[in-house]
């Protein structure tokens, strides 16, 4: 498996291109935030066939280029929501394992930042969208949703092995070990819990 990290200036979102091999192979797009010349060049020069768009959640800055992808590289869109940018999706409701061509992905429903937040685990890589980020957790609209998000992250994401790689939708990559040891928001919560402040 190969992972290309592509930064989309508008919205500061990472779009990930996950390929099953080096070239002439199938590929997935995680969060179609943008489809610019650089991304097209990588897809075309490696002769990749886009098999699916995996959406972590239906926020505009994460799905802005879904329509553009559909026109250039027609393929199914997988998401929690029924439609993304007017495109009908393959709906993913709860935690499950799915196969798309050469890929097997674990799908985790991790609400908190948004009710439709999904996390995709492909081999040893966790594409966490707007749930767990390097050193912090994603923003939420209320304290109760933040508590939900932190609980869901602890239960569903941090249970993976220390060596799993983390690719969030915003910011730099990380590893589960690093997040267990040095995630400021998670540490702050665990200190508060240990002191019975929450």
């Amino acid at each position: 498996m190969r992972v290309y990290c592509h930064f989309c200036e508008t919205g500061q979102v990472n779009t990930y291109l996950v390929c099953s091999g080096e070239r002439d192979c199938s590929a997935l797009i995680i969060d179609p935030a943008d489809l610019d010349n650089e991304l097209i060049r990588i897809i075309e020069s490696h002769n990749l066939t886009i098999k699916a768009l995996l959406v972590t959640h239906n926020h505009e800055n994460h799905v802005r280029a879904a329509g553009k992808f559909q026109k250039i590289y027609p393929c199914p869109v997988y998401a929690y929501s029924r439609t993304i940018s007017g495109i009908s999706t393959v709906q993913l409701k709860e935690t499950l394992k799915m196969n798309i061509e050469d890929f097997t992905a674990d799908v985790l429903h991790v609400p908190g930042h948004s009710d439709d937040s999904l996390v995709y685990v492909i081999e040893n890589a966790i594409f966490s969208g707007d749930t767990l980020q390097a050193g912090r957790v994603s923003s939420t609209s209320s304290f109760s949703k933040r508590a939900d998000l932190i609980r869901n992250i602890s239960k569903k994401i941090l249970c993976y092995d220390d060596n799993y790689l983390l690719f969030p939708a915003h910011g730099c990559p990380s590893k589960i070990r690093i997040e267990r040891m040095m995630n400021y928001d998670m540490l702050e919560t665990s200190v508060a819990l240990s002191e019975n402040l929450l």
Binding site: C5, F7, N14, A134, C172, S174, I178, M181, M182
Partner: peptide, 8 residues
């Protein structure tokens, strides 16, 4: 150093 993780 763009989008690099230098935490801790």
């Amino acid at each position: 150093m763009f989008n690099c993780n230098l935490i801790g």
